[in-house]
């Protein structure tokens, strides 16, 4: 079994999202709690700006839930930068026991899965799960300087600038995290780091199939099944190949990276990506729509490409991963 069914499903009691200016012009702009006018946010480097974004998202999620730092037993967070510096430097400011994660863009559901296990297992009353990414800090680490005059491939994606934070609690009135399916690494040999949707799609499929087999749910039991950042190409691969595996996802399935930008007008090519892609769409759009009653059961499956530029230059392919969590208005 790859899936944990929570006996006492933790409740989501508070969330907060911050996004950059470009995301704030996208189709989901009304769902984000704070839209920055300047993605440097008064800081002197992109890395420091990203850290401030994550810190403020965590602090605001706590104050949204009328919570203080010492009400929280664990902070579980991660990001894209080397040595997950964003998360560590954020945790430096917060004085909350801290687990740092690296799951690339799958970090949101990795954090939610582990956070829910800690709460359900009785090891914590409340945990906060957070992640962030920043277009400019990711570009300089993984790709080219901002002012370099290069052309981007059609399959390339746009790293979302922003952060999302979720407070999970042993008490609360929902929505609840009812299941978590932990992904296995799947690597089908894609080496092109500008086509990460194709690299991650097989991992998403593997986790989806395990989830349906383990839980007995079918796509019809969900109001929404949404992946993290497969983008337009990865999404179309998952729908097509899942059909061949006998799962019809065509109506219920979409992707946070497809939804967050208007690809025709915002020039984001295959869609959004980055840890903040799943984090801001989940803590903004999905959570608020679940509270409104638009969705009663959602499967969030954040996807990660676990490579680095170094190993990629050595000729290795890109290992993909996907972790899924079920968000339900009922305890399951």
């Amino acid at each position: 079994m790859q899936t944990v069914k929570f006996q006492n499903p933790p409740s989501i009691v508070s969330t907060y999202t911050i996004v950059g200016p470009k995301e704030g012009e996208g189709p989901l702009k009304d769902y984000f709690d704070l839209i920055l006018e300047d993605d440097m946010w008064g800081q002197e480097s992109f890395e420091k700006a990203e850290s401030k974004i994550q810190e403020e998202a965590i602090k605001s999620a706590l104050s949204n839930g009328n919570l203080a730092n010492n009400d929280i037993d664990y902070l579980i967070s991660g990001d894209l930068l080397n040595q997950i510096i964003t998360s560590s430097y954020t945790a430096r400011q917060l004085s909350i026991p801290f687990y740092g994660l690296y799951g690339a863009c799958s970090t949101m559901t990795e954090a939610l899965s582990l956070g829910a296990m800690l709460v359900d297992g009785g090891f914590a009353k409340k945990v906060i799960c957070a992640t962030s990414s920043h277009f400019s800090s990711a570009e300089r680490q993984f790709r080219f300087p901002l002012e370099y005059g290069s052309q981007r491939n059609f399959s390339s994606q746009w790293t979302v600038t922003g952060a999302g934070a979720t407070v999970l609690s042993a008490d609360g009135n929902g929505p609840y995290v009812t299941y978590a399916t932990t992904g296995k690494i799947v690597d089908m040999g894609i080496k092109d780091a500008t086509n990460m949707g194709a690299a991650m799609a097989p991992a998403a499929m593997d986790t989806l199939i395990s989830h349906f087999n383990d839980t007995g749910y079918s796509p019809a039991d969900y109001d929404l099944i949404i992946s993290g950042d497969l983008g337009i190409i990865g999404k179309s691969i998952v729908i097509d190949l899942m059909q061949k595996e006998g799962f019809d996802l065509s109506e219920k399935f979409t992707d946070c990276g497809v939804e967050i930008f208007d690809h025709k007008n915002q020039d984001t090519h295959a869609g959004g990506s980055g840890c903040a892609c799943a984090a801001t769409v989940f803590n903004g759009y999905i959570y608020k729509e679940v509270l409104k009653g638009s969705f009663s059961r959602v499967l969030l499956i954040a996807t990660g490409a676990l490579h680095s530029t170094t190993i990629n230059q050595q000729g290795e392919s890109i290992p993909g991963i996907a972790h899924a969590v079920t968000i339900d208005i009922n305890k399951g």
Partner: peptide
């Protein structure tokens, strides 16, 4: 220059101005 490069591709990459862009952009960054 990055906007010219986005449109021009190799047309703005190959001339010596592209070389200048390739040196100055990381220096700034």
């Amino acid at each position: 220059y990055d906007k010219i490069g986005k449109v021009g591709g190799a047309g703005s990459l190959v001339p010596i101005t592209g070389f200048s862009n390739a040196v100055v952009s990381p220096a700034m960054e």
